[in-house]
Design a protein around this nucleic acid. Structure first.
Lengths: 199, 199
DNA sequence: CTACAATGTATGCGGCGTTCACATCGAGAC
DNA sequence: GTCTCGATGTGAACGCCGCATACATTGTAG
């Protein structure tokens, strides 16, 4: 009976597991995210979470899906619907910032093989994809939105991961933000000059 | 005595462990990469690998470092030192191809928190970074190599991950290669048109 | 009030990483 | 040639893990 003065039924163990998982993720990284630890933190027996999640992967997928939703909010908060390269750069900075502030969560969202089973997860990533496309469409109505949004997303996603893995200096938020802005601007401003410089 | 007709001493267990780890990685993904499984495959007791690797992370780091070296060779094989956007695009395609052909290895190389302890690993990633910078310098002598190489690497790295995670269609090598080429070209050709289209 | 479905518990299995004491081997000192 | 010692491999053991199974408790619908 892990719960001393509590009731036998938890009330909302599903949500409690998710909360515990997020806490463990931030405290100990993804290595600390075990079903047993989650159960302990929720004050419940080791196997209770199985009533709400089929297995560990299901819980992890739920955490990832929640991360996607938070990322979407975070980006929207940075700029609801940018229509200029600068606005888009602000969103890009927010994306990378999100990754660096929640490294373990971001890795869970992207670094693990994505199981196509979790509808929640698939829907959440589709939403992000849609959002990026919409932003690009708004900022560059004349361009091929498909190609450009892929390019922008990949660029920003790559920046996030390279910073996360220590391949790029991420010692201060400012240096990161500057680099992201510079890279995004490079995507929109340098090429003509480059073609010339080469010849 | 796991080794029936063999000798007590293995001979080169260090290398055997690495080989076994690579095989397990390709067969069962990173989940199957356990020290015990490596030891079994090497025909050795469960604790023997500890004579050559401090812990599991050390072995994983060694695998990652080997992956970095192979990636460098793979890129060089695609094009020794490109000097045109097309040549650079070919290298980019090779980068993404490498990731998609060895998904588990690529994740080990980039998706796990990189421990700065492993000198081997740090050196190998620095070599990749240098290579990219060199390629960019060769292809665009007039540009800011630092900024542009970061941008290019991030773009290509992001493309690799988004394909790997199923965020972009990777059903055939051709469709992937086309997308990568298009994205890289977008980095060098579209912006002028974009600035106009927007106004 | 009772039966049932939902929810949580207890126990147990095999696998894992890691530690420690011990066994075996190869090579150099005498 | 023998001895000794460091390097290498073994075995048992600990605590953690995911998960399956059988059982206990509870709210609720009839």
């Amino acid at each position: 009976m892990p719960q001393a003065g509590g009731t036998y039924h938890h009330g909302d163990l599903r949500a409690a597991c998710l909360r515990a998982a997020r806490e463990l993720l931030e405290e100990d990284g993804s290595a600390g995210l075990s079903l047993r630890a989650v159960a302990r933190r929720a004050g419940v027996s080791a196997t209770a979470p199985y009533r709400h999640y089929a297995d560990r992967d299901a819980l992890v997928s739920a955490v990832a899906a929640q991360g996607y939703r938070e990322l979407a909010e975070h980006l929207a908060a940075a700029h609801p619907s940018p229509t200029t390269p600068d606005g888009l750069a602000a969103v890009a900075v927010a994306y990378v910032r999100f990754a660096l502030d929640r490294p373990a969560l971001f890795r869970v969202m992207f670094a693990e093989p994505c199981d196509p089973n979790s509808e929640e997860r698939v829907a959440a990533t589709a939403a992000i994809s849609e959002y990026v496309r919409g932003v690009v469409r708004g900022a560059f109505p004349g361009a091929d939105a498909e190609v450009l949004s892929t390019t922008v997303w990949a660029l920003v996603h790559g920046l996030a991961f390279l910073h996360l893995d220590g391949k790029l200096d991420a010692s201060t938020p400012d240096v990161v933000a500057d680099r992201v802005r510079t890279a995004v601007q490079a995507l929109f401003t340098t090429p003509a000059a480059l073609s010339q410089a080469k010849g």
